[in-house]
């Protein structure tokens, strides 16, 4: 499917979700968000505001149930599409807390993922060449790629492993869920530069973060503030800078949002 330049890559309309196993726990309360190819959207918000829920819901996690609204991707309603099909259609989630898969190497996982995405097995030679090139661009060693997925990885290594997968899978929509958290400044720079180097000009990015500092490397076109399951403000980079400078409270007061409403 080709995407019209003016049409959205991702279009979220009035999205409300709850926890599948606890339907009384409502998290997102009517999110609207539109991401066009090539755009970088930063999503910021205090802890527990629903940022990761939004990321996981777009990726199709069964942990959350959509109660209302819909998610459409490349003009197709994917609200109830299985996670694997979304991934094959080009959506990639870099997890905040990537899961360890003992006994399975990153190389093996990536190869299987490419096979699933393209529907055919890449030749070993071609794969290795592509892997080496991507590792090089990310300043990572081949030994790293031969380790078991996230098994015994440090926080920084886990995030780098996610970015390596991003680089190899070349998604059209990348959701980076707190890819910067837990990284020291050097690791942050490596990861952020990695995203920048690997980025296709048409790739849409939803970058979820607590801090403004990663945005100095991956400059956002739009910044959204998520509070209590609602996007309460949207703006440009200046909005992120303001939050970094003064925190969320002044903004919430300005918007007349009580502390209670700010909680999910």
């Amino acid at each position: 499917m080709t995407t019209n330049e003016n049409s959205s890559l991702l279009e979220i309309t009035d999205l409300a979700t709850s926890v599948t196993e606890r339907p009384d726990v409502k998290i997102l309360k009517g999110i609207n968000l539109s991401i066009k190819p090539g755009e970088v959207h930063a999503l910021m918000g205090p802890n527990g505001s629903g940022k990761s829920t939004l990321a996981l819901t777009i990726a199709g996690s069964p942990t959350y149930t959509v109660d209302r609204g819909n998610v459409s991707y490349k003009d197709e309603d994917i609200t109830h599409m299985a996670a694997d099909q979304r991934a094959r259609n080009g959506i990639f989630l870099s997890f905040q807390y990537p899961t360890a898969i003992p006994g399975v190497t990153l190389v093996n996982l990536i190869r299987e993922a490419i096979k699933a995405r393209t529907g055919e097995d890449v030749s070993a030679r071609e794969f290795i060449a592509q892997l080496r090139e991507t590792l090089g661009r990310l300043k990572m060693s081949e030994d790293f790629a031969r380790r078991y997925v996230n098994d015994g990885f440090s926080g920084g290594e886990k995030k780098r492993a996610e970015i390596l997968q991003l680089g190899m899978l070349r998604p059209e929509l990348a959701i980076l869920d707190e890819t910067d958290s837990g990284l020291d400044i050097d690791a942050l720079r490596t990861v952020a530069e990695g995203v920048t180097t690997l980025r296709d000009p048409n790739m849409g990015i939803l970058l979820i973060t607590h801090y403004e500092r990663i945005l100095n490397y991956i400059e956002p076109d739009f910044v959204h503030i998520l509070v209590g399951g609602n996007i309460v403000a949207s703006g440009d980079f200046d909005l992120a800078k303001r939050i970094e400078g003064e925190g969320y409270d002044p903004l919430l007061r300005e918007l007349n949002i009580s502390e209670e409403e700010a909680l999910i």
Binding site: D84, R86, A87, E112
Partner: peptide, 26 residues
Amino acid sequence: EGMFYLMSRGLNKRAALRILVGGFLS
């Protein structure tokens, strides 16, 4: 969690399971 992680990379349920079992037995 492992299943979702693998499926979020495009592997269907059976492929994800094969990978997880392979890793488990390795």
